[in-house]
């Protein structure tokens, strides 16, 4: 092939302008993301097929159970273990995304000086940043969505009519919107940190830690911050027989229950038991006037999902705005 023909051959493809440049420059990272999705999908299919092909036979064996599947009690146990691991692993996606945007995408250009090439073309520095943000946001969504789908596929055999574990860290986020919001926030944090730090490795470290700390911190306080639903009743009859006075439903998330005294003070659920060793008998000197149960019904799942998604998207917009402000100060 002649040199001139080779020069012309590269003009194929559908991407144009700064989008072509950004995708071409970060092609290895995009391929890595795709490989990650394909690998996760392959493992998920393998585990699901295995779990179906080798059903549990000796789950209640006594003594030394022979290993039946790759060192696990059964293919189904391996599938469940992997699904639990996968939920936690998904929470590290924002770390990955924030680090990649901050380091290879932004800070490396500032560190190596190629920004002086990019910013003196016809497309402005603002367009340069906007394109990087857009490509990163699309790629992050395209990475997170299939992984979330794979997670749901993994745990499908374990979720019956009752939505088990929807409040758990990892499981809650892995329904989609929340994790995508955290990933988009990681993109914006990555851009801001990359422009601020201007050195590849420190930018990756800082952006990764900040991006990861967001879902970690919110996950710790999520259910405490969102208003609970409370049921109350007169008297001290919080417990009737083996259970609580009111069945809040198996897919609700019990936060707290207990007694209210005449002075309005809340006592824990075991305040009577500690004195009488009987859940249903309360000493008169506690002055209990009523009982309460604070809980999150399953309907709160969507409210918290929407609220958290909206807050994280607002934070992402704020971080992106700050990044553009910073860029305008460093570029002319």
């Amino acid at each position: 092939m002649s040199a001139s023909a080779t020069l012309r051959r590269t003009s194929g493809g559908r991407l144009r302008g700064p989008y072509w440049t950004t995708v071409r420059l970060h092609r290895p990272i995009l391929w890595t993301g795709l490989a990650l999705v394909i690998a996760a999908a392959a493992v998920a299919v393998f585990l699901r097929v295995s779990a179906a092909a080798f059903p549990e036979k000796q789950w209640n064996c006594i003594g030394a159970c022979p290993d039946t599947f790759l060192g696990f009690a059964s293919a189904s146990v391996l599938l469940e273990t992997f699904a639990d691991f996968f939920a936690v692993a998904l929470l590290f996606l924002p770390l990955l995304i924030g680090a990649v945007v901050a380091g290879p995408m932004i800070a490396r250009e500032l560190e190596s000086g190629t920004y002086r090439l990019a910013w003196t073309q016809s497309a402005s520095p603002a367009r340069w940043l906007a394109t990087k943000l857009a490509v990163a946001a699309i790629a992050a969504t395209a990475l997170v969505l299939p992984l979330v789908g794979i997670f749901q596929f993994l745990r499908a055999p374990f979720t019956g009519p009752v939505n088990r574990g929807w409040v758990q860290r990892g499981v809650f986020e892995a329904y989609g919107p929340v994790l995508i919001a955290y990933s988009l926030l990681a993109v914006a944090i990555g851009a801001l940190v990359g422009l601020l730090v201007r050195r590849t490795l420190p930018a990756m470290a800082i952006a990764g830690v900040v991006s990861l700390s967001m879902p970690m911190a919110v996950g710790t306080v999520r259910w405490d911050v969102f208003p609970v639903r409370t049921v109350t009743g007169e008297g001290s009859g919080l417990f009737v027989g083996a259970g609580r006075a009111v069945d809040i439903g198996r897919d609700s998330f019990l936060m707290q229950s207990g007694y209210v005294t005449a002075s309005g003070e809340r006592l824990p659920y075991n305040a009577c038991w500690r004195r009488t060793r009987d859940m249903e008998t309360c000493p008169a000197d506690l002055n209990i006037t009523s009982w309460y149960i604070d809980f999150h019904p399953h309907s709160h799942f969507w409210w918290v999902t929407f609220a958290e998604t909206a807050i994280m998207l607002a934070l992402a917009a704020a971080a992106a705005w700050a990044a553009f402000r910073l860029l305008r100060r460093s570029a002319v």
């Binding site: 080779t6 020069l7 590269t10 144009r16 700064p18 072509w20 440049t21 073309q121 016809s122």
Partner: peptide, 12 residues
């Protein structure tokens, strides 16, 4: 060749 393509894409 890709560097020259970059020139084309960024200076339409």
């Amino acid at each position: 060749a890709e560097t020259l393509r970059l020139g084309l894409e960024l200076n339409p």
